[in-house]
Design a protein around this nucleic acid. Structure first.
Ligand SMILES: [Mn+2]
Ligand SMILES: [Mn+2]
Ligand SMILES: [Zn+2]
Ligand SMILES: [Zn+2]
Lengths: 173, 173
DNA sequence: ATTATATTGATAATCGTTATCAATATTAAA
DNA sequence: TTTAATATTGATAACGATTATCAATATAAT
């Protein structure tokens, strides 16, 4: 039964790169996590085992894992990427609560099918897709923070920010 | 017949912000463009009219236009955002050629419908979505650059880069 | 052994975007 | 009209996740 380690090894050999203890360790720890992992989380757990490991190596190794198809990087909201294992994981898309950032994974065969049809009709060769549904989860919806959130939104919209209990001007980006 | 200018004016008034000549000018020029505009393109055209206008004001004004729903920002590949007018424009999603960056706009009612159904089934309130199909357009496909692209991809994957005619090591991000 | 190539960590650089701030301009209040 | 309060603007510094650079080291090929 082939596994991630063998695949990674083969990929590295094929690319004339090397299967090192460090790369093994990083893959090992990455696979401990379920779902979406942030680089920082990963780095912490790795540093617990060996604090001398630099963050650059982490980025480099993740990049390699992406190149060989074992990992996928997502760019959801906050600028930071998250990494998700892709081997022996069904394809799925994401439903994201914009309030608490909870994510739900789903798949919809018909949507997938229509995506292919659309591409064909425009003469495109579909390589991949990104689909994210953004909404408010049940919890956030009922925990009636809506008032606070609304006012917060208004404050942000009107280019003010609550700071130290008073309203202070800020820039309007 | 209500237009973007009136909507923007109303929005500003409502937020106790001001309708200034500069904001009018920026909106004016933005509306000259069709489709997706980059901030840099916009800045050039604006500077042609008045070189003293700072880029910060552009970002600020675009942000306001987004807040009031007249504009949408997209984050496709290359890190840079593009801005698209949203008023009197049908909702659509995007099909993007990853080689030449050509984009095609499309809509598919059933996909939209299923998105809503999916959200409901998980108890989410759908607020928005993002769907991008990534592929190779007909032109790029047939202009048989595939050999070059393949080798380029391999080079990138194997963490090398063609530089000054020789193969030089580079980092592996 | 000797040479060629790959890996690693520290650290600087990148770059689109945001924040800060002081000078003006505009509006509201007195 | 004065006076105070608030908003706008441009220059420029800061941000922050990611990437590049580089020298030291490790590994593979010959
Ligand atoms: Mn997932
Ligand atoms: Mn569009
Ligand atoms: Zn939530
Ligand atoms: Zn193309």
């Amino acid at each position: 039964m082939i596994n991630e380690f063998d695949l990674f090894k083969d990929f590295l050999r094929q690319q004339k790169l090397r299967w090192t203890p460090l790369r093994k360790m990083i893959l090992d720890i990455f696979l401990c996590f379920d779902g979406h992992v942030q680089i920082e989380t990963l780095h912490e757990k790795i540093c617990a085992q060996d604090p001398s490991i630099g963050i650059a190596t982490l980025y480099r190794t993740l990049k390699l894992l992406i190149d060989c198809g074992l990992v996928e990087a997502h760019s959801f909201q906050n600028g930071k990427k998250t990494y998700e294992r892709m081997f022996h994981v069904r394809h799925h898309d994401h439903l994201i609560c914009t309030r608490c950032e909870e994510t739900v994974e789903f798949e919809h065969p018909l949507i997938e099918k229509y995506q292919i049809e659309i591409c064909e009709s425009y003469g495109f060769t579909l390589k991949s897709h990104r689909m994210e549904l953004l909404g408010i989860c049940k919890n956030c919806e009922k925990s009636g923070d809506s008032a606070w959130h609304l006012s917060k939104k208004t404050l942000l919209q009107s280019s003010y920010r609550l700071k130290q209990g008073t309203l202070q001007q800020t820039t309007r980006f």
